[in-house]
């Protein structure tokens, strides 16, 4: 395996780089889209259940199908990495929008009432009190979304754009386990690092969590 890595260093690094971008860009897009959506789901409780249902439907579309159908829907080229990015953004939103709503709903009413009594207006209360308190739940969802994105990218290899997934198809076509093992290990490693980073961010952003009996 080491031998394979040495011989194909450039190829593997390129695949890894592509993998990181294809997996993490959708996470960023997903966060930006999910925060307002999740907030709407709490602000207008009638929207919550429909939102959860729609997210469930979107999440159950197989990734390969989404990769292939998207060009027809959004007018991109068939091999464009944009297809993968948009598809994974949809999954991220499907997961996160609900998590954001659940997180905001989990905030203790007495705390928001206290903030209101202190003169916090709605927006400031949202960013100053509710979101920070919802953070543990939101970040738990973000961990799930990030890790599954990283493993889903490789499916794109079936249409020629799949980061480390290219190592899977290459090894498979030659009936050669080494590239596949390298790809799987790197993908898992990448997910592990991303997951760890989010946990560290969570620790840094929610210092109060460690004071009360903390469950990660």
């Amino acid at each position: 395996m080491i031998d394979y890595l040495q011989r194909n260093q450039e190829l593997v690094l390129e695949a890894l780089g592509e993998h990181v971008v294809l997996a993490l860009l959708p996470v960023l897009i997903g966060i930006v889209v999910s925060l307002p959506l999740g907030y709407l789901g709490v602000r207008f409780p009638r929207l919550y259940q429909p939102m959860v249902n729609v997210c469930g439907i979107l999440y159950s579309i197989p990734s390969l199908a989404l990769f292939v159908i998207l060009p027809v829907v959004i007018g991109t080229k068939v091999l464009s990495p944009v297809n993968i990015v948009v598809a994974l953004s949809i999954y991220t939103v499907a997961l996160l929008a609900r998590t954001v709503a659940d997180g905001l709903r989990s905030v203790d009413r007495t705390l928001t009432d206290a903030a209101t009594a202190m003169g916090y207006r709605r927006i400031r209360r949202l960013f100053g009190v509710e979101l920070p308190l919802a953070l543990p739940v939101v970040l738990a969802g973000l961990r799930v979304a990030t890790v599954s994105n990283i493993s889903l990218v490789s499916v794109g290899a079936l249409i020629g754009v799949g980061g480390l997934g290219a190592l899977f198809t290459r090894g498979f076509q030659l009936f050669y386990a080494e590239p596949i093992i390298v790809g799987v290990l790197l993908s898992v490693l990448l997910a592990g690092i991303a997951d760890l980073l989010i946990v560290l961010v969570q620790r840094a952003l929610t210092p109060w969590a460690r004071l009360s009996a903390g469950r990660v």
């Binding site: 799930v144 490789s154 997934g165 899977f168 596949i180």
Partner: peptide, 23 residues
Amino acid sequence: AINAGNAGRSLPTLGLLMLMVTL
């Protein structure tokens, strides 16, 4: 048990499948 969830999710199914077929 706590970490199995995310560890399992991080395994790329396509890669695992192709590896298993190869082996």
